[in-house]
Design a protein around this nucleic acid. Structure first.
Lengths: 194, 194
DNA sequence: CTTGAAACGGATGAACCATCCGTTTCAAGG
DNA sequence: CCTTGAAACGGATGGTTCATCCGTTTCAAG
């Protein structure tokens, strides 16, 4: 069941495709596998062989960023200050979505096309549920909020920061952060400390 | 400059197209003008003549709902209780977006394709800016919030309620309302009353 | 070096998009 | 009514995009 080792040329092309894909996703172009092939100077079939659908490519592009986010969540879980841990993780999650469109796309999609993505999302869910639980237990978050709510609201904030807001990652990051703060003012009940 | 009166058959077909369009939009199908023609049992050219792009059709479908929202905003402006007026308008706006996907689509799109839509959106913007101003003046809303923020956050809440949330307009409406309440808890500073 | 499995790429057929133009329908004037 | 010209119709058609298939090339194990 371990993924068969890729041939050298295949590995090189795989790399090339992912790089081109990342570049195209960054500039908000809706990915078309044919176009990716042209941009990578590869045959169409080569692209389709590695990534049967655009989603597969998007998820592959998103994987590193998603992993990093998981790592971030693990660190947060290690913290013993429940609310700051949750808050910082949410900041990081929104930041990642603004910075890397593929992450936003994966987080907003109903369910993953690749097993790897499912794995990462599962871990992310578990970790954020844990963070939320502890924040709730500390009385820092409204008890009616569910893990699903957190995930949805995260996507909502990112979406809000993209719609209408002036172009440029820089300003969108600030906008998103501001919106997250507004949301915190709402879902953050302040019994214990800060 | 008044729109030339439509011939009888043309008017009938226009109607048919809009009806079919509304039906397709309701079921989240991305509209393809060709498909609309097929579903309406009309020639492709007829559809393209009336609506050169999918956006034009979407905006036409959205117009009545948008008008109603404008009317709602006008009523709200007439109220003398600043915060409840703003709050109820926002409830209505989110409800409308969940109930009618074409409205959500228009509100989230960068800028309108039809003059009529531009007109309606302009009025909506002015009215909501007014509502926001007065709520701010009454000390009921954080002063850093701009009219643009309100528009974006509205779209964000709608988006959040659609992503991941269980199917069905009913539950999505409730979810959206809940999210809006969370947001209110955040942007609503409570100096005066309520 | 041989050899067979793996990967490559472009030609190709299917699907989709949007325009053009010959035909039909409408309604105003006789 | 009937005529007539303008307006609207519809589907055939050329252009574009999508994704598969298969003959050729490349890799690496023996």
């Amino acid at each position: 069941m371990t993924t068969a080792p890729l041939r050298k040329d295949a590995a090189r092309n795989w790399q090339r495709i992912v790089e081109v894909g990342r570049r195209l996703i960054d500039q908000q172009v809706p990915i078309q596998l044919n176009e990716v092939a042209r941009a990578a100077s590869l045959g169409v079939a080569t692209v389709y062989r590695h990534f049967p659908t655009p989603e597969a490519l998007i998820e592959t592009v998103a994987a590193p960023g998603l992993s990093e986010l998981v790592r971030h969540a693990e660190q947060a879980v290690a913290s013993d200050e429940a609310w700051p841990a949750l808050r910082d993780f949410l900041y990081a999650a929104v930041d990642a979505q603004i910075t890397d469109a593929s992450i936003a796309s994966v987080l907003a999609s109903p369910q993953p096309a690749l097993p790897l993505t499912g794995e990462l999302l599962g871990r992310l869910n578990d970790l954020s549920a844990d963070l939320l639980d502890r924040a709730r237990a500390a009385g820092a978050v409204d008890p009616s909020i569910t893990p699903g709510d957190v995930a949805s609201l995260l996507c909502g904030v990112t979406f809000a920061a993209r719609v209408h807001s002036p172009e440029g990652v820089r300003s969108r990051t600030e906008t998103a952060r501001r919106y997250l703060d507004v949301l915190f003012g709402g879902l953050h009940t302040r019994p214990p400390a800060n």
